[in-house]
């Protein structure tokens, strides 16, 4: 059974489609990278899939009630909002909300595992708002992990983070996939997308332009048509890595 199925999903702003007839299936065990230029509709697609804005077509999540949906999919918005100086553990525990009161041994175990996975055990009692941007990003990911849903949708989770944090977060997603969960993550770093995602989905002006292995999706004609750039896979001691090259004129 798939973790997420979208069929002809369309979101209109006025008469103009922002997401245009996108059909997509994500299976357990996959890290799917959602790529595309700014304004391609990546965020809108994910929010519509979650039922956070009105859409036409169908998303498998929309068939569920709000509580069931929250147990089926965790959402990590791009805006890293932490409104109050609560402790890291309190914040991560909020992820247990869809499962009940959040104080059972199962909840404790999930919170502990999420903290551990994001390397936050020593931060448990620290105030979340007093942490650095990278640490806050990790706390928010731990919150989404604590939700323990079979599907995670993450909107540009690595934007603005240092290289080590970016790689660590992508590795957390890969570990999740290894455990049979599914991840849909929007990314601007095509190199990291090619390296850490099992599959890429390329959006352009709301349409799904290409879908498949990183090599297929990052082919020269797709890069030229959507991003207006060139790029290439380069052989390195760590295997083939994708590198963007120049803006096409």
């Amino acid at each position: 059974m798939s973790a997420l199925t979208l069929r002809d999903l369309t979101v209109k702003r006025g008469d103009c489609p922002v997401v245009d007839n996108v059909s997509l299936t994500i299976a357990p065990g996959e890290v799917v990278g959602l790529i595309g230029p700014n304004g391609a509709g990546k965020t809108t697609l994910m929010r519509a899939a979650l039922g956070l804005l009105r859409s036409e077509g169908s998303s498998s999540l929309l068939a569920l009630g709000p509580a069931e949906r929250a147990r089926a999919a965790a959402w990590l918005p791009q805006a890293r909002e932490i409104a109050w100086p609560v402790s890291v553990e309190t914040l991560v525990r909020l992820g247990r909300m869809p499962h009940g009161a959040g104080t059972s041994p199962t909840d404790d175990a999930a919170v502990h595992a999420a903290l551990q996975r994001c390397g936050l055990e020593s931060f448990r009692t620290r105030s979340a708002t007093a942490l650095s941007g990278g640490e806050q990003a990790r706390v928010l990911i731990a919150r989404a992990l604590a939700q323990d849903a079979p599907l995670l949708l993450a909107d540009e989770p690595i934007a603005g983070l240092d290289p080590a944090a970016q790689i660590q977060i992508m590795e957390v997603f890969q570990t999740l996939a290894g455990e049979g969960k599914a991840v849909l993550v929007s990314l601007h770093d095509l190199g990291l997308a090619a390296r850490h995602c099992t599959r890429l989905v390329l959006l352009h002006r709301g349409r799904l332009v290409a879908e498949g292995s990183p090599r297929d999706v990052l082919a020269a004609q797709h890069l030229a048509a959507t991003f207006g750039i060139s790029g290439a896979f380069v052989e390195t001691p760590s295997g083939p890595l994708f590198q963007t090259l120049e803006v096409l004129r």
Binding site: R47, L50, L52, R69, A70, A73, A74, W75, L76, P77, A79, E81, I82, A83, W84, V86, L91, L94, L140, R143
Partner: peptide, 9 residues
């Protein structure tokens, strides 16, 4: 605390 979007989800 996590914002409207995250709370709604």
């Amino acid at each position: 605390t996590l914002g409207e979007d995250a709370a709604q989800a």
